[in-house]
């Protein structure tokens, strides 16, 4: 086991009775990396995170977090982890301030200025009882307790849920700052857009299995884009149907629509033989294309190749 891995899982498996939570998960998160952990609801993200934190015990396989055994070294490990639960509930009736003081004391003392800084950034009033707060404000208090002790590893389960767009941006800035400070971030989401702009890599799970681990830069290249070309005169569909990466070709008179997987070059070269009036290429919507590629069954074959 190498020390430059913040998270390592080997064949990590959890069954709830007969029901699969996650199975055969092999995952590596490097130290200092921001890893997005993506998958639709029920994919096994929360289960994986609870295994890393030793709330759940694996049915099979093992895991090392910051080089430590989550069960044997729980005390040492949890001092270095900031955790935001996916189903956030706070113990007791404390005000946010009392609650955060408890978390600070429990972790061996935290500079209070750090807490007030975070509260200022997220614009949350700490004098109110957490129980009476809106979902968004509770989420902010949850984020503050995760970040306040500047842990080596942040494990955040659906961190942006309940945050309005402005606060989501602030949260992403906090993640970037954490990364600059050398902290590792492992954050789950069911929406790619939430992690796309901060993550170095994304790991994708579906039905309890890891289907892909990709660098974020390479996601765009893989994306399928919709292209529409307007010609001066009607064109022959046969000139376009056999091009590499081009599919769903529909020609109605001078208008051609198709989808392109990968580079546009072959399509452009073919179109250049005619007089082109206009060309529309829809931004690759990663959400629609890339994720559906993995989430739905037709992506499964390719996904297994990637995994192996």
């Amino acid at each position: 086991m190498t020390s430059d891995l913040a998270v390592l899982t080997e064949d990590l498996t959890k069954f709830y009775g007969d029901h699969r939570g996650v199975e055969g998960l092999n995952l590596e998160v490097g130290t200092g990396e921001v890893m997005g952990f993506l998958g639709p609801n029920g994919a096994g993200k929360t289960t994986t995170i609870r295994l890393l934190l030793d709330f759940l015990r694996p049915s099979r396989g093992r895991t090392a977090v910051l080089g430590l055994d989550p069960r044997r070294d729980k005390a040492a490990l949890h001092r270095q982890i900031g955790y935001l639960p996916g189903e956030l509930a706070f113990p007791g009736r404390d005000t946010a301030e009392d609650l955060l003081r408890f978390f600070g004391d429990a972790r061996g003392g935290v500079a209070w200025s750090k807490v007030t800084d975070l509260a200022g950034r997220l614009e949350v009033d700490l004098s109110r009882p957490v129980r009476t707060m809106s979902k968004g404000n509770k989420q902010k208090v949850g984020l503050i307790q995760a970040f306040m002790h500047e842990p080596a590893l942040l494990i955040l389960d659906e961190p942006t849920s309940g945050l309005d767009p402005l606060m989501q941006q602030e949260f992403l800035a906090m993640v970037r700052d954490a990364r600059s400070a050398g902290q590792t971030v492992f954050m789950s989401s069911h929406v790619l857009a939430e992690v796309q702009h901060v993550a170095d890599r994304v790991a994708i799970v579906r039905d309890g299995r890891l289907v892909a681990v990709e660098r974020v830069e390479s996601l765009g290249r893989r994306a399928v884009r919709a292209v529409e070309i307007h010609f001066h005169d009607p064109v022959d569909p046969a000139d376009f149907t056999d091009l590499p990466g081009v599919s769903d070709v529909v020609v109605s008179g001078p208008v051609l629509t198709c989808t392109v997987d990968g580079r546009l070059d072959p399509l452009i070269k073919a179109a250049a033989r005619y007089e082109v009036v206009d060309l529309l290429s829809a931004e690759p919507d990663l959400e629609e294309t890339f994720l559906s590629f993995y989430y739905h069954s037709e992506g499964a074959g390719d996904a297994h190749r990637t995994r192996a």
Partner: peptide, 13 residues
Amino acid sequence: GGMELLLVNPVSR
């Protein structure tokens, strides 16, 4: 549900 934030207390189970 409050258990998770109690149990991240850095002490053994």
